[in-house]
């Protein structure tokens, strides 16, 4: 089947239903053929976020720093935690987490937000969640630049060449995020509950992921978690994709907390086997998300 607006002629019938491979190919074509549309949507998105604030794009720098500060104060002052170079420990995980959380948050409503447009113009709807997720890349890049500066200026002892793994880890996370974004964006069209629920689930996910703690039993509160959940519980926590991702980020940027809890070994090679497996899983999720999205896409204009 050809895409109506691109092709000089088109044939639409209730009898034509492409299979999974056909849908994947269509989706790929949609995204590639509409690169420019995605770019327009991203620039509109970025402008929208910065338009009503006094500081405008300064917030890209300030936002992750403030978030880190909040947790820094909470954990080190109130809960009396002492992990060496705690700001870096936190930042290395909170930054990629924030990327994920705001991507999903934007993507969930990306389709339903364009209700009017979808009913009036025929275009590949897949560009909506894709551009919502892609728009966040810019934020992340800024955040990582700040972190790099922080690393070199304040925590030079942590610096190793292993920081170079970060883009690769980010790629795995991106594939995972796009896959999940396509799923939630399409389901949210039919059940708006998803949009409300996802905010809470993501918050829960945050605490279950090694953002404020890590799997090193000496670092902060992990001992208490281990005690509460037992070995089986911890193994389940390790299955979480973000256990793999955030541990990998932290390994590459921060390193590991020593067994005694008062020192650290600087940046390390992340667990590449776990990362590779997660990449395969993420690809599977991307395929699933794409097929589901493309399958229900024709119904969007009717349901919205």
């Amino acid at each position: 089947m050809q895409i109506a607006t691109e092709a000089p002629s088109s044939f639409r019938s209730s009898a034509v239903r492409p299979g999974a491979v056909g849908l994947m190919r269509e989706a790929l074509h949609d995204v590639l053929a509409r690169r420019r549309l995605i770019r327009h949507l991203i620039s509109a998105d970025i402008r929208r976020k910065g338009s009503d604030t006094l500081l405008g794009n300064v917030w890209w720098v300030l936002d992750p720093l403030l978030q880190m500060s909040v947790y820094l104060i909470l954990l080190s002052v109130i809960l009396q935690r002492s992990t060496p170079d705690f700001p870096l420990f936190l930042f290395a995980a909170i930054l990629p987490w924030k990327w994920f959380a705001s991507s999903i948050n934007d993507a969930v409503s990306s389709v339903v937000r364009q209700e009017r447009l979808i009913k009036q113009v025929q275009f590949p709807k897949i560009v909506l969640p894709v551009s919502a997720v892609a728009a966040e890349i810019l934020n992340l890049t800024f955040g990582f630049l700040i972190m790099l500066g922080m690393l070199v200026l304040f925590f030079p002892a942590h610096v190793t060449l292993n920081v170079a793994w970060v883009p690769l880890i980010a790629l795995v996370q991106f594939v995972f995020t796009v896959g999940l974004a396509l799923l939630v964006a399409s389901i949210n069209v039919f059940y708006r509950d998803v949009g409300i629920l996802s905010g809470h689930l993501i918050r829960l996910w945050f605490f279950l992921s090694p953002t404020l703690w890590s799997f090193d039993s000496s670092a902060g509160r992990f001992g208490a978690i281990e005690e509460a959940l037992g070995e089986a519980g911890v193994n389940i926590l390790r299955m979480n994709p973000f256990a793999v991702l955030l541990t990998a980020y932290r390994d590459a940027i921060y390193g590991r907390v020593n067994a005694t809890g008062d020192g650290f070994t600087p940046g390390q090679t992340p667990d590449l086997v776990a990362l590779g497996m997660l990449f395969l899983f993420s690809l599977g999720l991307l395929v699933l998300g794409t097929v589901v999205f493309k399958r229900v896409e024709p119904a969007f204009a009717k349901v919205l």
């Binding site: 109506a4 002629s9 044939f11 639409r12 209730s14 009017r116 447009l117 113009v121 025929q122 009717k302």
Partner: peptide, 25 residues
């Protein structure tokens, strides 16, 4: 316009379609 798929039957369109369904959508 191709915005909605038919539930039954066939529609064939021969040429480049432009829809001015709503101007400010």
């Amino acid at each position: 316009a191709g915005i909605i798929m038919p539930s039954e039957g066939v529609v064939e369109v021969n040429g480049h379609v432009s829809t001015l369904l709503h101007l400010q959508a």
